[in-house]
Design a protein around this nucleic acid. Sequence first.
DNA 1: CTGAAAGCGCTAACAG
DNA 2: CTGTTAGCGCTTTCAG
Lengths: 341, 341
Amino acid sequence: MKNTQATIRDIAIKLNISISTVSRALRGAPDVNPETKKAVLEMAEKLHYEPNRVAQSLRIKRTNTLGIIVPEIALHFFSSAISGMQEEASHHGYSIMICQSLESYETEKQNVHMLAANRVDGMFISMSSETKDYAHIQQLLNKNIPVVLFDRVTDSLQVAKVVVDDHDGAFKAVEHLIKTGCRRIAYIGGPLTFYISNQRKRGYLDALKQYNIAPDEELIVHCQELHHEPVERVKRLLQLPPDKRPDALFCLNDPIALPVLQMLKEQSIRVPEDISVVGFTNEPVSGFIEPSLTTVSQPSHEMGKKAIELFIQQNQDLDNFIPATEVMKTTLVVRNSTRKI
Amino acid sequence: MKNTQATIRDIAIKLNISISTVSRALRGAPDVNPETKKAVLEMAEKLHYEPNRVAQSLRIKRTNTLGIIVPEIALHFFSSAISGMQEEASHHGYSIMICQSLESYETEKQNVHMLAANRVDGMFISMSSETKDYAHIQQLLNKNIPVVLFDRVTDSLQVAKVVVDDHDGAFKAVEHLIKTGCRRIAYIGGPLTFYISNQRKRGYLDALKQYNIAPDEELIVHCQELHHEPVERVKRLLQLPPDKRPDALFCLNDPIALPVLQMLKEQSIRVPEDISVVGFTNEPVSGFIEPSLTTVSQPSHEMGKKAIELFIQQNQDLDNFIPATEVMKTTLVVRNSTRKI
DNA sequence: CTGAAAGCGCTAACAG
DNA sequence: CTGTTAGCGCTTTCAG
């Protein structure tokens, strides 16, 4: 009593016709007698027939399934991007399979293998902060499996990408800090190998330069780990002598800025009077925290949709395909963690 | 140049042995010459062989894939539950496929069909608020596809379930309101057919009863739609004459309570001085909003893990399996949207 | 320890 | 318009 699932064979036998006719009828092929077709459809309904996509996939060498790898499903930026992908994918008849790397390079590699073994038709990857070797992804390309990177990307790979203009977003954020009177602006970033962190750092440095503020190495922090280290590093910055101390913090992202804000509150350091704080991403929490967080907003849902669109385009014209990088605009959302102009 | 993927056949030919031997070696079967095995493994590595799970699945009639259907991926409760399922599933060698119903019954049905067509080994469903007919799920059971319902469940189906003690959570929430001096407590719920809404309503009514407060039908609201309607309905409640007006709102969940809180702020109605508000779920935002929201916390990540565990158990002992309902404990999180005792 | 052969459920020529 | 046939890549008897 295991697999009670009906097959086209069952339908064929019941109707005393061949399985190929059933197959054709089911798929709505043009050259099939309307009566036969009707009979097949009715019998399928009656037997609760459900096409076996596994068998189909094996035969047609396509699974109509897309694989997604993100660092952490539960982070709003990613769940929102996934949601966008899911919607767009289902419009095009694709199912999605999801993995999380939990910011581990090894897990990410395993995820890639698992999805490859499942023969997904394409992979959508936002890389772990640990990842600095891209052989596992290059291998997919060698096997002609389309890859779209989003948000957490790298220059080392010739593939379609969906990113925001990190440099521009960071520039606008830091410019805002400068315009509101901050001069000793610290950058709280991620690992040195972390692409988006470096892009945002470049934007930070360029803004300083434009306003003739000399960067101070002491105020540029690279965290290896993003959960606990940032708060500790900021604490250390606050212990610098008064003239060395930062008067603003530009954080790699909101998940870093929020606990920092929390810590400042605990230490009774006033924001923005004593120190300004800016994040990146615009998590839903950020608008509600007290003081609300000034941040750079990324269109997560749209980025997800766009990633799928890029894949669809690429598939339509496989031969002369040039990997496109879609750069989406960020918006500076000014709230209360920075001073008024 | 399409599928450059190596197969066991390729390995067999290169090594001049039979494909069955390759298959055995790859799966680490016991009865295979260590030398042959070594050669096979090396050749597999060399050819970047990746087992074809599609073919495997067709043959062994198991896909090692689990299907998940939630109303909305981007809601924190669900993305957190999914994250828990993903982790637990991958421990047991399962991949996961994800769909969202977007609170639509029709979409939910399509999702079920799609996952069934993909021959997932089990389905994990949190039903849409629209769903009041369960034939689509009953059909899965008839086909011996294990189903685990979580959070959004129903009594009408004999399946494994993971829920929180909604009645108890609601009771505690309302009891807290009463103890802090509220007497005209409104319940802002979902559709009459929405199981969890009714459970929470029961908890609400029982708390009133226990404290000898007569329920007032006027204060019990059932919203058909959960995005805009609740705020409108609360506005109407506030227009009641002073002696009829509620002094507290117990909301079905945080996604309802938060916009309500926002609206009260806009209307300069003080919380909790003029009116207390309690939610359910404990979204991350809820602790940060001003005033922070008193709510009932659900262990979303753990619920996800538990759902997978239930499925694994069920699979180990298919014959004498009795569908278990796992009831998890909620915690009342007292914050600033309710008065102090 | 290894090979031959059958078949999972379906599609796609090809022939009528 | 319909049936026959040959696989897709893999596992699994059954013989050696």
